[in-house]
Design a protein around this nucleic acid. Structure first.
Length: 294
DNA sequence: AACCAGGACACAA
DNA sequence: TTGTGTCATGGT
């Protein structure tokens, strides 16, 4: 073929997706690299730049290059999960009914463990918009360029543990992560050296997978549970952050004084096998509900 | 302009 | 075991 194609060989695909609120899912504080552009939601998964749009019970995906398989995307979006089956296992109570009603279609993603661990190390006591900014800076500075559509702004992969382990703490601080810089570098070093094998954790029971994560500096119960839930798919992991704590106190213990530890004990026993999904609904419900009114 | 953010940690009592 | 100060940064 001698013709010159000015456009790179993009790929398109359409996936049936009922009960899927793409916007809520991509902005619900589990992943930090999605931006709403005029043409749809744009982000990077692994080394794929991708644009997603929702069209009548289907998700339309565009990549900048031909792809052999879409498994990386269907896995990331968890397109084979039946939301109805998940919601059916929620406790039948008023708070969850309200939360589900307010944002039915909210999903859990299945992210890369290293990106997830690193992102949530950077998340501590930061607003979601700031986490997005830090992660963006980190990718621009330490990530690899990925293929993008012609004329599009550059996009970068999430830096590997090896790439970040080589960075100086001062370089990391340029990305505005502050006191989290030594935590990130230590985790990167641990993963790069093989001391922490993230791949291996997926084969373990939840509680055995949690402890090596907790051994990372800057990783406590909350961040460990985020990684267990958002990267490994342990759907009974239940991260309790300030919003979820607020939701639990307000919706399940109104007028009472409940310690953080008591909240953890309650959530561990009450929400059942799909506790992680319930947690995400409560988080999103609380956050969208208390936004300033116009 | 204060208050707070998808926390963790060292240290106190 | 449970409670407080500290850390860095900037959005609301």
């Amino acid at each position: 073929v001698t013709s010159v194609d000015q456009h790179p060989p993009t790929s398109h695909a359409v996936f049936p997706a009922t009960d899927y609120d793409l916007a809520a899912t991509l902005t619900s504080g589990q992943a930090f690299r999605w931006r709403l552009q005029p043409g749809g939601w744009e982000g990077v998964i692994g080394n794929h730049w991708v644009r997603l749009t929702m069209q009548q019970n289907a998700i339309h995906a565009t990549t900048a290059r031909k792809v052999k398989s879409w498994d990386w995307l269907t896995r990331y979006l968890q397109l084979d999960v039946s939301l109805g089956a998940v919601l059916a296992e929620f406790p039948d109570d008023e708070p969850l009914r309200q939360a589900v009603k307010s944002c039915r279609g909210l999903r859990l993603l299945r992210q890369d463990p290293w990106e997830c661990l690193a992102s949530f190390i950077l998340s501590s006591t930061k607003q979601i918009v700031q986490i997005q900014q830090i992660v963006d800076l980190l990718c621009q500075r330490f990530g690899q360029p990925v293929h993008i559509p012609t004329g599009h702004a550059p996009a970068f992969s999430f830096p590997t543990a090896q790439q970040l382990a080589q960075a100086e703490e001062a370089e990391l601080r340029i990305c505005k992560m502050g006191f989290r810089a030594p935590y990130l570098k230590a985790a990167a070093t641990k993963v790069a050296s093989g001391d922490l094998d993230l791949q291996q954790l997926s084969a373990l029971p939840v509680d055995q997978a949690r402890s090596p994560l907790l051994n990372c500096l800057g990783v406590g119960q909350k961040i460990a549970d985020c990684v267990l839930l958002f990267a490994y798919g342990f759907q009974n992991a239940f991260p309790v952050d300030v919003w979820v704590a607020k939701a639990l106190r307000q919706l399940y213990f109104p007028g009472q004084t409940v310690s953080h530890q008591q909240l953890r004990e309650f959530s561990n026993s009450y929400f059942g096998p799909q506790a992680g999904y319930a947690q995400q609904y409560l988080f999103h419900f609380m956050r969208t509900r208390t936004l300033p009114r116009p």
